[in-house]
Design a binder for these strands. Structure first.
Length: 580
RNA sequence: GACGCGUUAGCUCAGCGGGAGAGCACCGGAUUGUCGAUCCGGGAGUCACGGGUUCGAAUCCCGUACGCGUCGCCA
């Protein structure tokens, strides 16, 4: 698998068992150490590692030149072994060096010891990817994709491609527009996801579909977001949420094992409401505690104005009493920035059962409240208690952010805790017109127990939408889809979408549904995020071969660029100069 | 669109109101066991760009560009 007509071994392969063999290696010069006319060392590197080659004479080579070296494997002299590298017990002797290609000095060193500015790395991405870190990341990504594909295949899913040139579907993410040459003035768009196409495949009878699909969204970029990203896209007919979750779990667990060697533990389940209540977020990081607790009963009849609110929650921070005033002030500022009126803190002090709290608010507390606060948060001397009072949603969100601030574990450390978050709300607040805003897409099936609330109290309606979360990152989402026209109409009604409007936007899908739509459900896993976490990278650009910068440019190619005037003419387009 | 941080040699960075610096890389020389080899020598700069303050600006102020992070946005 490694030998070719040009080489017999890889540079990281040779061991003492190979001693005596005449071998040929190909690779790049990682370093060269000359000792005069009679001795020189050349470290030859490929993706597998480095081999030291001993040249009896001087060699005219430079870093990153491409060489083929033929030599005989021998054990290194006593005391000259290099324990730092896997090939360190041997070296290549009696070498003949063939220069396959010279190279300019690289713009930065091809190693993991220093990290260049990302713009420079992206400009010379082909050099950057020669570094062990990028080689490891992209090869791990390849193993993840392979394992996912095998897992889906094994479970009987058919891989089907869907169009990249799709039709505009207003709403949702901003779409990349592709002007049509043959139909002047009209456009395709690049798909935000294969969502509608895969639902059509269900109508066609492909009861288990998957695709490793590229999705494109013209929205602002982030550490965990690129214009184009890769999803493991899945849809199943005659199946419910638990079936989809089981199939996807299989794929991500296999992928994790293929990537890092061990299978993650049980994938937990938690409802959206419980996730918000306990962790203050819909994508909880389960690797650490600091669970939020309800302090409502403690302050039920309180005199403390700040705690007279619909919801009072908090949590204890073990050892947190050591936090300095600056740090606490920063936390209070953060809480206020997130919409809380404040963040109350109490340092637990004292001993022998006597509860002593240090806090600006302490003098307003009753003895019962002091005791209840400490008991409720399970804290003791040396710990810190943080409390927020407001309406439930604000309390949870603010405490969730503070919890992360205090407990967050770097992405590359600790265990991997997958978790399904279920029963998301159907709607997410109201828009300017007073209509509820769909939290997922409008084909998401409401929770069967909440159908009666659709007209009367839509914001209380739960949906059959679910997310997969790993260590505080949203890995993907999915739902049971609506396959019945009457329920679809109810949802459109609730969203304020008229039948005419629905026909205009999704007519072809609704039409297809009249020809025998099976019950179906699906999911999509964000592959870039999963791979980033498995690589221990905070940023998905580190697991993408040719990513864009935060402003959507490619420093290597210079894209985006103006196109030639004749290209615009062919499309019937004219540029409007910027006026700002 | 908003806020924050950054931009000094090919790369990583120090310098923060008065001489443009270091390590690595690069070029030349020395060197028979190095492994980020070592030693000697050398070349290398629009201090991102524009404006302002000042006797004097890499340094202080304003603006712009670019990069990164966060918010908005991502049904």
């Amino acid at each position: 698998m490694t030998s070719t007509a040009m080489r017999t071994h890889l540079c990281g392969q040779l061991r003492p068992t190979d001693v005596g063999e005449r071998v040929r290696l190909c690779g790049w010069v990682a370093s060269r150490r000359e000792h005069g006319e009679h001795l020189a060392f050349v470290d030859l590197r490929d993706h597998s590692g480095v081999t030291q080659c001993v040249v009896d004479g001087s060699v005219d080579v430079r870093n990153e030149w491409v060489l083929r070296i033929e030599g005989t494997v021998r054990t290194r002299p006593a005391d000259k072994e290099n324990a730092e590298i896997p090939t360190g017990a041997v070296e290549l002797a009696d070498c003949t060096v063939e220069v396959l290609n010279r190279a300019d000095p690289p713009p930065f060193a091809v190693d993991d010891r220093t990290d260049s500015d990302e713009a420079v790395r992206l400009k010379y991405r082909y050099v950057d990817m020669r570094r062990p870190r990028m080689q490891a990341n992209l090869r791990l990504r390849a193993r993840v994709l392979g394992a996912m594909r095998r897992a889906m295949d094994r479970q009987g899913f058919a891989e089907i491609e869907t169009p990249l040139l799709w039709t505009p579907t207003p709403e949702g993410a901003r779409e990349f527009v592709v002007p049509s040459r043959l139909h002047r003035g009209e456009c395709y768009v690049l798909p935000q996801s294969p969502q509608i196409a895969k639902q059509l495949l269900m109508v066609s009878g492909f009861d288990r579909y998957f695709q490793i699909a590229r999705c494109l969204r013209d929205e602002d970029l982030r550490a965990d977001r690129q214009f184009e990203f890769t999803q493991l896209d899945v849809e199943m007919s005659f199946a419910s949420d638990v079936d989809v979750q089981a199939a996807v779990t299989e794929a991500v667990v296999d992928a994790t094992e293929a990537a890092v060697g061990d299978r993650p533990g049980t994938v937990g389940r938690i409802t959206w409401h419980e996730a918000m209540d306990r962790y203050g977020t819909d994508k909880p990081d389960l690797r650490f505690g600091l669970d939020l607790v309800d302090l409502g009963p403690v302050f039920a009849g309180t005199e403390v104005k700040a705690f007279q609110a619909g919801c009072v929650k908090g949590f204890g921070v073990p050892g947190g009493a050591a936090l300095g005033r600056n740090r606490l002030d920063a936390l209070v500022d953060r809480a206020k920035a997130l919409g809380a009126k404040g963040l109350a803190w109490f340092k637990v002090a004292g001993a022998d059962g006597a509860v002593v709290l240090e806090s600006p608010l302490d003098k307003f507390l009753s003895d019962d409240e002091r005791a209840g606060l400490v008991a409720g948060t399970g804290t003791g001397p040396g710990d810190l208690i943080l409390v927020v009072a407001d309406e439930w949603r604000t309390v949870c969100t603010v405490l969730g952010a503070v919890r992360l601030e205090l407990g967050r574990i770097p992405v590359g450390e600790g265990e991997r805790r997958f978790c399904w978050v279920t029963e998301f709300p159907m709607f997410d607040g109201l828009d300017e017109a007073g209509n509820p805003v769909a939290a997922h897409h409008p084909f998401t099936m409401p929770h069967p127990d909440d159908l009666a609330l659709m007209a009367s109290d839509p914001l209380q309606v739960r949906s059959q939408a679910y997310d997969l979360v790993l260590n505080g990152w949203e890995l993907g989402s999915g739902s049971v889809r609506i396959h019945r026209e009457d329920i679809q109409r109810q949802v459109f009604d609730a969203l304020g979408i008229t039948p005419e409007e629905a026909e205009l936007r999704f007519g072809f899908l609704l039409g297809a549904f009249r020809y025998g739509a099976p019950p179906h459900a699906g999911f999509a896993v964000g592959v870039d995020r999963l791979v980033a976490i498995l690589c221990g990278e905070e940023n998905i650009r580190e697991v993408i071969a040719f990513p864009k910068t935060q402003s959507g440019t490619d420093p290597m190619t210079g894209a985006p660029k103006a196109v030639a005037p004749h290209a615009l003419r062919d499309l019937g387009l004219q540029l409007i100069p910027r006026t700002d």
